[in-house]
Structure formats: C-alpha cells, structure tokens
C-alpha cells in the first residue's frame, strides 16, 4: 500500500465486501438507523445486499399456480400466464405462485384479480377464470420406492366471471389452507 489513493480504494473495496458478506448472511441493515438505511439502499442498488439461499427451503413443497379458463359451454382448460413463446418466460411466470405466500389476503385477491383480468383480455372466449394455487409436496426417495405419490393441497382458489367492462369477482375464497 504505497499510496494514499490505493489505501482509500482498499478501504472502499473492503467496505463493499463487508456489505456483501452481511447481505449474504441475511443481516438487515435497513433497520439500523439512518446510516443503516443508507447502506441498505446502496446494497439494493449495487446488489451487495443479495442473499444466496438458492434451494435451501425447509419445506418439502412448492407452490404451483394454475389459471383455468372456462368458456360459454363450460369447457375448462388450464392456460399459462406466459404467451408460451419461451421456457424462460414460463419459469418466470411460475414464480408468481410465490407471491401468494403473502399474508395479506387483500393483496392476494388483488393479484388473482389482476391475473384473471389479463386472461380475460387474452382469451375473449372465456366466461370465467379460476386462479388456483396448489402446494405440491414431494415425497422422499424411500416413500417413492414404497409407491407413495406426491401430495397436492389447494391453498388458494378464486373464481372470476367475465365482466361487462372489467373483471368482477363472483366469489374469491382465499382460504390459506
């Protein structure tokens, strides 16, 4: 460290990497006063606050979102929220299911309503749209060998009837299961 600029550069790099480490450890700086909030904002802007907890869920399951379109004859078909143009898009829209984990029933209802409105727009033949979220529980290897099948539990179900101008909920049972 032969020069002052290098020392300062080193301090900045070390501070940034410290934030990266704290972010990776799940430390919430946003609650630690004004400086903590400033660092939290920097962490969001730079990505230093990211956590890397991929595939570390304690749960043995995954939320799965289905959107069913029902036409005037009562025919029901499950449609994707993506346009079907790419696998990448399908992966992303599948992640919307996780948004239903929110504890706020009103927000879940707004989200379901929004998705249903989009489906009415995309499928003019639809008379009703059902937004379902299921919890898929995988089995252990041992259970699979003994013939046990994965379990699916419904955690959210909302049905929307085609409106004249905008989608209106007929009923929206938001049973968190």
């Amino acid at each position: 460290m032969r020069s002052t600029p290098r020392r300062w550069l080193l301090v900045l790099v070390a501070a940034h990497l410290l934030l990266v480490t704290l972010g990776a450890a799940g430390v919430e700086l946003g609650d630690v006063g004004p400086i903590g909030r400033l660092l939290h904002h920097y962490g969001l802007a730079s990505g230093a606050e990211c956590e890397y907890d991929f595939f570390t869920s304690r749960d043995h399951g995954q939320l799965v979102l289905h959107v069913d379109v029902i036409d005037a004859e009562g025919r029901r078909s499950t449609r994707s929220l993506g346009t079907g143009a790419s696998h990448e898009a399908e992966i992303r829209v599948a992640h919307i299911a996780d948004a239903f984990e929110t504890a706020d029933p009103e927000l879940r209802r707004e989200l379901a309503k929004s998705l249903a409105a989009k489906m009415f727009d995309r499928h003019p033949e639809a008379r009703e749209v059902v937004v379902r979220v299921e919890y898929f529980v995988a089995v252990l290897m041992d259970e699979h060998r003994s013939g046990r099948e994965p379990r699916v539990t419904q955690v959210y179900d909302a049905r929307f009837r085609k409106p004249q101008a905008r989608p209106e909920a007929r009923h929206g049972s938001a049973d968190p299961g």
Binding site: L17, V20, T21, A24, A25, C50, E51, Y52, D53, F54, F55, T56
Partner: peptide
C-alpha cells in the same frame, strides 16, 4: 467466492 460460500453454508 462469498456468494458460493454463503450458498454452500446455507445449504
């Protein structure tokens, strides 16, 4: 390196 280490330790 930090990201891999954190991810591995969490797992």
């Amino acid at each position: 390196c930090i990201s891999y280490f954190a991810s591995g330790v969490e797992k």
